[in-house]
Amino acid sequence: MKLNTTKILKFFYYIFFILICQTANAALTQHQEEAKNKGIELYNQYKAISAIEFLKIAADAGDDEAQYYLGESIRKNNRYITQEALKAYEESAKKGNIYSMIRLGGANDDLCVTMKNCSPSELSAVEWMEKAKNLAIEQASQGNAESMYLLWEITGNDDWLEKSAESNFALAQFRLATKYQEGGGIFLLPSKRLDAIEKWMKASAENGYPPAMMGLAAARINKSDFSGFRIWNENAAALGYVSAVFGYASYIGEGEPKYGFVSDPVTSYALLYNLLELDGGGNVINNVKDVLPEVEKNMSKEQITEAKKLAKNWKATHPPLSFFPDKLGY
């Protein structure tokens, strides 16, 4: 009987892949962990180029999440999956990182196809996506809410999004709320749709997801609940969500703030001053440069000195600024 060499090689690769997925990441040293965190921080501030050198430190140590973000940073800088990005994704995927598998599974839609310079992958895009799906199903069956969400990303089946939201995964709750906002789902009455939107936005906000906090703040202001708007805006700002920080700082920087905020030019200046570090993407820095001088012109030199001290203290005692980009976004 003639043996099918290709099938035999694939069989042994699958066995090897499963064994690798079951192997935990090696523990990172403090230096490697700090580099990983810094790299992700920069990535979330749309500074992918600056993130690469930090992410490489943890990626070279075998951390699958750092490898995924390294692949993302390289891909976004080049606008397609380069050979270096592909290597990072594959190393991450072999450790069971579903995000990397999904990215590899979407390689047929990558710009490299149009450019006709795609690097050869160890598996086809279809095979990577199948692996992502199978692993996500296995983890979802064990109650993993994030894997339920990833199954929605993979299959487009809204049942998985709903299951993930019901299992308390904050991002799924936010996505479900926004899906309803955009007209998805079936509701007999418009009021029922609004109730569902607020229900899931609130659930996500209470689970600590800052974009949902601002979504809930918007829902509160539509109902003239200014107190609720202020609370959720401030909560999101305290967690470093860029749009919330800018909004909050802009309100309290005014002499007569809207929505019941109390004028506080020192804190306003401090927060706007910190936003100046966002000189990568996102364009918020242009808005800051418009607002900051308006706040500053009514402040004394002593207030400005106090504000800069507060800016430093705020940065040391709060999470880093972040745009909270979609982890699987383009």
Rank of each mutant, 00 (worst) to 15 (best):
L171W: 08
S191T: 11
S204N: 01
N108Q: 09
S268I: 09
I74H: 06
N313V: 07
K202A: 07
K327M: 04
A61I: 12
N157D: 15
C118I: 05
P265E: 11
E65A: 09
G281Q: 00
N157P: 01
A58L: 04
G208Y: 03
Y248N: 08
L310Q: 11
I231R: 11
S73K: 06
P319V: 01
A58Q: 02
T82F: 09
V262R: 09
Y251W: 07
L278A: 05
K289D: 05
G105C: 05
S141I: 01
E146W: 03
E130L: 10
N274F: 01
N233C: 13
T23I: 11
N37K: 15
A236D: 04
K223N: 09
K116Q: 13
A132K: 14
R175D: 13
Y273V: 02
K297S: 04
E122W: 00
E91G: 12
A132P: 14
E296L: 03
A205F: 04
Q22A: 10
P257N: 08
I20D: 13
E153V: 12
A26P: 04
Q45E: 13
A237R: 07
M148L: 08
A316E: 15
M201H: 09
Q30N: 11
P210R: 10
M213H: 04
D264G: 03
A170N: 08
E162D: 10
S100N: 13
I137G: 00
T317W: 02
K301W: 00
N287K: 12
E146P: 00
W160P: 08
E138G: 00
A66P: 08
A311P: 09
I57Y: 06
A170C: 05
I49L: 12
N44V: 01
A205V: 03
I74M: 06
T23M: 11
L275F: 06
Y248E: 02
S227E: 14
N144Q: 09
M101F: 06
G247Y: 14
F323G: 06
A270V: 00
D63W: 07
L28R: 10
A132I: 14
E182Q: 14
S124Y: 08
F187Q: 07
V242R: 03
Q67M: 12
E277L: 07
S300E: 10
M299K: 08
E277Q: 14
N313P: 00
S322V: 01
G183W: 12
N4P: 08
K38C: 05
R103K: 15
F17L: 15
W152T: 03
A316H: 11
L239E: 15
A237C: 10
E198M: 05
G184M: 05
